[in-house]
Computed example of a mutant assay.
Amino acid sequence: MKKNLMFLALAAVGLASCNGGFKKGENGLLYNKYTDKSGPKINEGDFVMVNLVVKNDADSVLFSTYEDGHPQPLLVPKPQFHGDLFDGIKLLAEGDSATIKLSADSIFKKSPKPPTFKGKYVIYDVKVEKLIPKGKMTDQIFQSTVTTYMTGLSTANKNAEPAKITKYIADNKLNVTKTDSGLYYVITQKGSGPTIMPGDTAVINYSGTTLNGKMFDSNIKADAIKGKLPNVAQRSFAPIRVPVGRKAVIAGWDQGLLLLNKGAKATFVIPSSLAYGERGNGPIGGYTPLAFNVELVDIVHPKLTATKPTVALPPVKSVPLKK
């Protein structure tokens, strides 16, 4: 991630020194191409896959597809205003890289500026990885073409997953055990007492990352700060309660928590088949394996409801009907 950002920054600086800086587009849009490929430019309605780093003036990264581990698929919409990001993207072709600067006042004109945002500009470092022009294709043929491409991409991600898991385990020197279902785990701190059982509730602390090290969730404040999770100041940090064995969470958690007893800590490396599968979830793409550091703080057993003893009722006497 840092190498990618460094490359983007150096490339932008290098080109600026050659051509005198950014060119001006509509409504104050500023852009600077540092890779200019031949080929058709992007148009409204086209399908693109883009890698994107969004920053403010102070170079603070607000969003990055490199950290998410996959480029962003996009059907190019109509611009929301003259000189917005999509007007900038239309200047690019497949393989192009550019930096696009937009006035923060223009972007936040119809919505309040986030209180944490600082600076006059929002800066986008864009790399167009794939372009499928709509052109004169019918909607049906265009959708089929996009679907075929995405299916191929999904298959490639699926096939690459085992190697990613193997590399992560080796790089982090994890002495893991693999279950029959494909879950990898290592107990990093032994607990005490019996292991948790299906029907119990696990009280846990956890931090989750993709295998490139990008943290996407944690209920531990120190980890959330280190992982640069958003809105840390507004979050409350406390152990969460998870029902075990009831399919209320991903299968990797359901299975992994059953290996722990109170006080135990573990690392789970969870293949996508036991996580979010081929569809993914939010920033977690399809066929994305995950890693979790988990601590089982406590076990809450279900309350047993006392049953009253059954009292046998006397047989009902048959009453003859009057004739």
Rank of each mutant, 00 (worst) to 15 (best):
N4C: 06
N4M: 13
A9R: 14
A9K: 14
L10D: 11
L15H: 05
N19R: 00
F22W: 00
G25A: 04
L30F: 02
N32V: 00
Y34E: 01
Y34H: 06
Y34K: 00
K37M: 14
G39R: 03
G45D: 02
D46Y: 01
V48S: 08
V48H: 02
V50N: 02
N51T: 04
K55E: 15
D57G: 10
A58C: 03
A58T: 08
S60I: 13
V61G: 12
S64M: 07
Y66W: 13
Y66D: 11
D68W: 04
G69V: 09
H70Q: 10
Q72T: 05
V76H: 10
H82S: 15
D87H: 04
K90R: 15
A93E: 01
T99W: 00
T99M: 11
K101T: 02
L102F: 05
S103D: 14
S103W: 03
I107N: 00
F108N: 05
P114M: 10
P115I: 12
P115K: 09
T116E: 11
T116R: 07
Y124M: 01
D125L: 04
V126A: 02
P133T: 15
K136W: 05
F142R: 11
V146N: 12
T148K: 14
Y149E: 08
L153E: 15
S154C: 05
N157E: 11
N157H: 10
N157Q: 13
N159F: 03
P162H: 01
K173I: 09
V176D: 00
K178M: 12
K178T: 15
S181G: 02
G182T: 04
L183R: 06
Q189C: 00
K190Q: 15
M197S: 13
P198G: 06
P198M: 10
V203G: 08
N205L: 15
Y206M: 13
M215Q: 13
F216M: 05
D217W: 02
K226L: 14
N231K: 14
S236Y: 02
P239G: 07
R241Q: 15
V242L: 15
P243Y: 01
K247T: 08
W253N: 04
L258N: 02
L258F: 00
N261L: 08
A266E: 03
V269T: 08
Y276S: 02
G280T: 03
P283L: 12
G286D: 10
P289T: 10
A291K: 09
F292E: 08
F292M: 06
L296I: 08
V300Y: 04
P302W: 08
K303D: 14
T305D: 02
A306Q: 08
T307W: 01
V311P: 06
V311S: 09
A312E: 13
A312L: 13
P315T: 11
V316S: 07
K317Y: 02
P320Y: 01
